[in-house]
């Protein structure tokens, strides 16, 4: 049972190879498990840990040990990228995750392009990369996952989202120029994470959903940039997880064209059905975060067992966890995977 390490298990799963049981992970970024229970019982806390590499790696370590997730997930927010490109960020509190305070550009035509490589040079990105580096050196068997905000979501975090969405129809060329710029930055940032020792890169792109964009715009503005980013990560030598939020009904044929190594989805998506429709896909998900917060150990265990019957390749939460999720429920999740597998 314990013959293979969590790192090897995850990499084998992402490579489509056989494993003893699915890994159970929480990749960081939007989907991180730095819940209040973990922080109050340890010395590493948010919001301070968003800035300092030692606090960040310390907290990621505590999260991993306390929750039983089989990875380190870094960072704990999705604001590092947009902040580097000019957005104001509110760092939140122990209970409340950071968020974009204000997008600096009113439309895609007004975006000021910063010199290439700017994300990697900011203090917060450096903290993220340092934390990944020290964790991956110290723990060879536990995979460090670097979490990157997707191109469309990053673009919609530097341009006011409502005009941004209109610009996808009326200012297509300028929108592509912004996405090209953002995507280049994200590629550099992801490469630095991989150089630091990240075993896997996870891309979450919550604005790039079928529900918001529909299939046509998803195909034109989300798919190519997600694939470009995934290709850059592959070229750097590690696999990629792509998380798509919301209902994917309208974009199923587009999902088949994504070049990630695993597709992570929200709770309303039936992964068994999706697998049937998209042969060869590696699925990740999708335990309800509502259940994790408001359920109990019994109901969580029951749901985990039901999900495992759907042949999901990698077990993970379906969406961002509430910071008030009880640690007992998260432990019930991870141990149910270990016991059932």
């Amino acid at each position: 049972m314990n013959s293979i390490s969590p790192r090897e298990r995850l990499l084998r799963s992402l490579g489509g190879k056989t494993v003893d049981r699915p890994p159970v992970i929480c990749p960081g970024g939007m989907m991180n498990a730095a819940v209040v229970d973990v922080m109050t019982s340890g010395i590493y806390k948010l919001p301070e840990a968003h800035h300092d590499p030692d606090l960040m790696s310390g907290l990621a370590g505590n999260v991993q040990r306390e929750t039983g997730f089989e990875n380190f997930g870094i960072p704990f927010c999705m604001t590092v990228e947009a902040e580097s490109l000019g957005s104001e960020v509110d760092y939140g509190s122990l209970e409340c995750e950071p968020k974009i305070g204000r997008e600096p550009f009113p439309s895609v035509k007004e975006v000021e392009f910063r010199p290439r490589g700017v994300i990697g040079r900011t203090a917060r990105a450096e903290a993220v990369i340092e934390a990944i580096t020290s964790l991956s050196r110290e723990y060879e068997d536990i995979p460090a996952i670097g979490s990157v905000t997707g191109p469309l979501s990053t673009a919609a975090s530097i341009v006011d989202p409502m005009p941004f969405l209109k610009d996808l129809r009326r200012e297509k060329d300028a929108a592509h120029r912004v996405l090209d710029y953002v995507c280049g930055e994200l590629e550099d940032y992801a490469r630095l994470m991989v150089e630091g020792g990240a075993s896997v890169i996870s891309i979450a792109d919550p604005t790039a959903t079928g529900e918001i964009l529909g299939p046509k715009i998803f195909r034109e503005f989300a798919l190519p940039y997600l694939n470009r980013l995934a290709d850059a990560v592959h070229a750097a030598g590690v696999p990629v997880i792509i998380h798509i939020c919301g209902n994917v009904r309208s974009i199923k044929s587009e999902l088949a064209l994504l070049r990630g190594d695993a597709l992570s989805v929200d709770a309303m998506v039936n992964l068994k059905a999706l697998k049937g429709e998209t042969p060869g896909i590696t699925t990740m998900g999708n335990l309800s975060t509502y259940l994790l917060e408001f359920g109990n150990e019994g109901s969580v265990g029951k749901s985990v067992r039901a999900l495992m019957n759907q042949d999901i390749d990698i077990m993970a939460p379906a969406c961002g966890l509430s910071t008030s999720t009880p640690i007992e429920n998260i432990r019930a999740f991870t141990s149910a995977v270990r016991e059932t597998g």
């Binding site: 969405l165 209109k166 129809r169 009326r170 529900e211 964009l213 529909g214 715009i217």
Partner: peptide, 14 residues
């Protein structure tokens, strides 16, 4: 009916 999505609805409103 999922024939229009957010960008289309915003442009109609415009």
């Amino acid at each position: 009916d999922e024939e229009y999505f957010v960008p289309e609805l915003l442009m109609c409103s415009e």
